[in-house]
Design a protein around this nucleic acid. Structure first.
Length: 243
DNA sequence: ACAATATCCTGCGAGC
DNA sequence: TGCTCGCAGGATATTG
């Protein structure tokens, strides 16, 4: 499930390989990421935008498979394949990315603690996990990293934003950046379908403490990891050392 | 303002 | 073996 670290990994790899090349005579000037959306900019101001959703893959010089929905060819003969097994992902060509970027919340790495506190104050009745996953609230966090961030912060996913202590808010803020940073270093989490921009698996699954660890022992206190449904999503947490 | 649910789609593993 | 069922889930629309 590509979230911020996975899309950022792909972005970096693609940027290295395709900036300066051309598709249909149009020169690529940049490869950007906003939330979980990957953006390829062209010199004429137009962009190709991709959302990988659950099972999307963007692989530079990848070998097409039965799930390859689109292949982009570059002027040097290299290519970019877009795989989309469950067809939730999408891509399109647009003239401006403004309308796509406008509704999204701030990027975690651009965020300051003070601002984060103000954001939370506006949503006191929201449960913290669904809130962290709300792209209009903060960009790029999905089911995996929200579970891991809350575990690291010792906060239960059902806690209301307004009930968090200053200390807990700071922990969530710090752990968000820390975990996302570490996950990018590991090239993301290949739980099932995700592959990076070169077709390789991300290594961050090894660092998962609670995500999909239902029934296993908490690495911090030994209690049994629990799974609950929250807004149609599964939340994994330790009932003993997350409060 | 918030929660819960269905929806899109396909593969996989469990259970019978 | 081969069926059915539940599950995985990002974002959105809908209903409560």
């Amino acid at each position: 499930m590509p979230e911020l670290p996975e899309v950022e990994t792909i972005r970096r790899q693609l940027a290295k390989n395709i900036v300066g090349k051309k598709i249909d005579g149009k020169k690529i000037t940049d490869v950007r990421r906003r939330a979980k959306i990957l953006i390829i900019d062209f010199a004429n101001g137009h962009s190709l935008v991709f959302h990988l959703k659950l099972t999307g893959q963007l692989i530079y010089n990848g070998k097409p498979s039965k799930y390859t929905r689109k292949v982009f060819y570059f002027d040097d003969g290299s290519r970019l394949i877009f795989n989309n097994l469950r067809k939730f992902g999408w891509w399109k060509k647009i003239k401006s990315t403004k309308s796509i970027e406008a509704p999204l919340g701030p990027e975690p790495f651009d965020l300051e603690l003070k601002q984060f506190k103000v954001m939370l104050k506006k949503r006191p009745k929201s449960k913290i996990k669904p809130l962290l996953m709300d792209q209009k609230f903060i960009a790029g966090i999905g089911n995996i990293y929200s579970d891991e961030i809350l575990f690291a912060s010792c906060v239960q996913p059902t806690r209301l934003a307004g009930s968090l202590s200053q200390r807990e808010v700071k922990a969530i803020f710090d752990n968000t950046k820390k975990i996302l940073r570490k996950a990018i270093k590991a090239r993301g989490s290949s739980v099932r379908d995700y592959l990076d921009g070169l077709g390789k698996k991300g290594q961050y699954v090894k660092e998962h403490k609670v995500y999909q660890k239902t029934g296993e022992n908490c690495p911090r206190c030994g209690a049994v990891i629990k799974r609950i449904k929250l807004g149609g999503r599964s939340a994994h947490y330790c009932p003993k050392c997350q409060y």
